[in-house]
Design a protein around this nucleic acid. Structure first.
Length: 565
RNA sequence: GCGGGCGUAACUCAGUGGUAGAGUGCCACCUUGCCAAGGUGGAUGUCGAGGGUUCGAAUCCCUUCGCCCGCUCCA
């Protein structure tokens, strides 16, 4: 999650209530807590019937617009056709995949845990963190005189340190050795300073002394940045889920659940090139579950430990990569807008230079202003220029040649062919979070309007709505139910592939409309007494509540037009 | 991980030591003539879980799980 809140970009409309959205999601069966009857399990969520269909519709929209007809048929840079093929790779890959990608190293930073307050700090950043953000250090450092010119040793005054330990130190760093046992701790330090005037201790060594109560028994120790207690030993902090492939749970059999789908694509890049008549530039798309052991799952489904990604890796010649990057960045923003995130809550944010990975020439995030991030934004999708980093890594680690032979390049030969040019393609990666997408769509669709008979309703784009339409008899008599049933069957026969068509003859018409509003059904067709006379029905629009009459024979065409199918 | 708040019906919540409640929703029947309309009736809870105190616990204590908020973390 990022937290960018330009003052000029403040929300014009009031922030929606996340509690109300979550209540509706539960009540109407969009999202349930996973394993709820057992008390739930931290960081995991299930989709109910409407949620499962909504998410499928989003996944289908991605698949259709990225794989089946990429970018709605728009041309890429230089008027080139945009071509993409699908792929489905395994959640479990060879462990060396994660070695090559850097996840094994990057996802297992050495962390140190404070046994007293439970605080975590990265082992390699301990001293930086203390100097930059430790409250007790900021206070303590003021008790020292500045270092004399050309030295690293601040001037120490034992009396002032004693006083600090008994006053401010008690509050700020209650577990620091200096605070718990000032005389002993200071005596070791004074001995050290006076004993070796030619090699005075630097700031870090002084801090380590102040954290050490029993020098003889323990040696110098390191303090917790927050409470000053002695930190535990560095231990790998595992953000990847581990399991075993094989019956024995030994180190040899250890495998990991993927933290992203992208690596499966890079690993199969050569196979796709070699076994399909496809030429660069082209993309490979893959949707599927990924897993990260998030430290703090939070904000409903926004940061879950099991989540689904929709990733495309688009391969192109290095000299075209920047243009393709910009192309994809802009298209992906357009795409999110096209499925209903059209408002001021969606932004495209280009990363600053210092945010970029060393191999990247550009990265952008599509971000949505969720109720829980407002006035800031949370990431929906990252579009990254990854250079040839990943193919290079896998080429090195596996020894397999990842080069592409571009037969459209190189000098023109006498026979009219090109000589060809071998290179490692560059890669543009639009990587979307489907669950975050669903959550953004739920938040965007949720609308509260107390002036309506149905004050809470879901304004889904018709393409995503789990229920596409409903057919009602105005009252359950005079032959209306029979006509409704016939129309319902007709619509179901035609539209079942894209979503549900519902019918309901119980309760009053207002209640039935209201129920459909909460489920986000865009259109309701109602059979009334006029239908019997002139073969027309009313169409009710979810967002406005307005009605128009159309011929019963035109209903199917009307809906097809609205759903663009 | 720390700090704060919360956990009672599908949803929103009342109930602070003495028989488990309300509104909404849901279901059935009656009534219907376009917006959660009206009437009658009905179903639904191991009060998040475990332990303790007590004659007696939704209520007090301890532990634990989950959710929300603020820190922290987020390759």
């Amino acid at each position: 999650m990022s937290d960018h809140a330009p003052a000029s970009n403040a929300p014009a409309s009031p922030v929606k209530s996340m509690d109300a959205i979550m209540a509706l999601c539960k009540r109407r069966g969009f999202i349930y807590q996973a394993s709820e009857i057992y008390g739930g399990i931290n960081g995991f969520w299930d989709y109910g019937p409407l949620g499962a269909q909504l998410k499928k519709n989003l996944r289908d929209a991605w698949w259709q617009d990225m794989i089946m007809r990429p970018c709605w048929g728009k041309q890429g840079p230089g008027g080139r056709e945009v071509r993409c093929v699908p792929l489905e790779t395994c959640i479990v890959q060879h462990p060396r995949v994660w070695q090559a990608s850097g996840h094994l190293a990057g996802f297992a930073d050495l962390m140190r845990k404070c046994p007293k307050c439970g605080h975590f700090v990265r082992a390699d950043q301990l001293w930086d963190t203390i100097v930059q953000s430790s409250e007790w250090f900021a206070s303590l450092i003021q008790e020292f005189e500045p270092s004399p010119e050309g030295t690293q040793t601040p001037q120490m005054n034992a009396d002032r340190l004693l006083k600090w330990a008994r006053t401010k130190g008690k509050k700020l760093a209650p577990n620091l050795a200096l605070v718990r046992n000032p005389e002993v701790t200071l005596s070791w330090l004074v001995t050290r300073v006076n004993g070796q005037p030619t090699a005075p201790p630097d700031v870090i060594e002084i801090l380590r002394h102040l954290a050490t109560e029993q020098l003889n028994a323990t040696g110098l120790q390191d303090p917790c940045t927050r409470c000053g207690a002695v930190l535990g030993e560095p231990a790998p902090f595992k953000l990847m889920f581990e399991t075993w492939a094989g019956l024995t749970q030994t180190e040899d059999n250890k495998v990991y659940l993927r933290p992203e789908t992208a690596q499966g694509i890079f690993v199969q890049f050569k196979n796709v090139v070699d076994t399909n008549r496809i030429k660069i530039p082209f993309g490979i798309g893959n949707t599927g579950k990924s897993f990260r052991n998030e430290i703090t799952p939070r904000n409903f489904t926004f940061r879950s430990r099991e989540f689904e990604q929709a990733e495309l890796e688009f391969f192109c010649p290095p000299d075209e990569s920047l243009e393709w990057y910009k192309f994809w960045r802009d298209f992906r923003m357009e795409w999110w807008k096209s499925i209903g995130l059209a408002g001021e809550n969606l932004i495209l944010r280009e990363h600053e230079k210092d945010e970029l990975s060393f191999y990247s020439q550009g990265t952008s995030d599509v971000e949505y202003r969720f109720p829980f991030t407002a006035p800031g934004f949370g990431e929906l999708e990252g579009i990254a220029h990854r250079g040839n980093y990943d193919l290079t890594q896998h080429q090195k680690e596996s020894g397999a040649k990842m080069e592409y032979n571009d037969t459209e390049r190189g000098e023109l030969l006498p026979n009219g062919q090109r000589r060809g040019e071998r290179y490692l393609p560059h890669c543009i990666e639009p990587a979307a979070g489907l669950d975050r997408g669903v959550l953004a769509i739920l938040c965007e669709a949720y609308t509260k309007d107390e002036s309506r008979p149905s004050p809470e309703f879901m304004k889904f784009h018709p393409r995503l709505a789990p229920i596409k339409a409903a057919v009602f008899p105005l009252v359950a008599k005079d032959g209306m139910p029979e006509i409704a049933e016939k129309l319902h069957k007709e619509l179901t026969d035609r539209f079942w592939r894209v979503g549900a068509i519902e019918t309901d003859e119980k309760q009053t018409i207002g209640k039935r409309y209201a129920r459909m509003d909460e489920a986000g059904c865009p259109y309701c067709f109602t059979i009334d007494s006029d239908t019997l006379k002139d073969q027309t029905v009313t169409v009710r629009d979810r967002d406005t509540g307005s009605q128009e009459r159309i011929g019963i024979d035109n209903v199917s065409g009307f809906l097809a037009d609205k759903l663009q199918v």
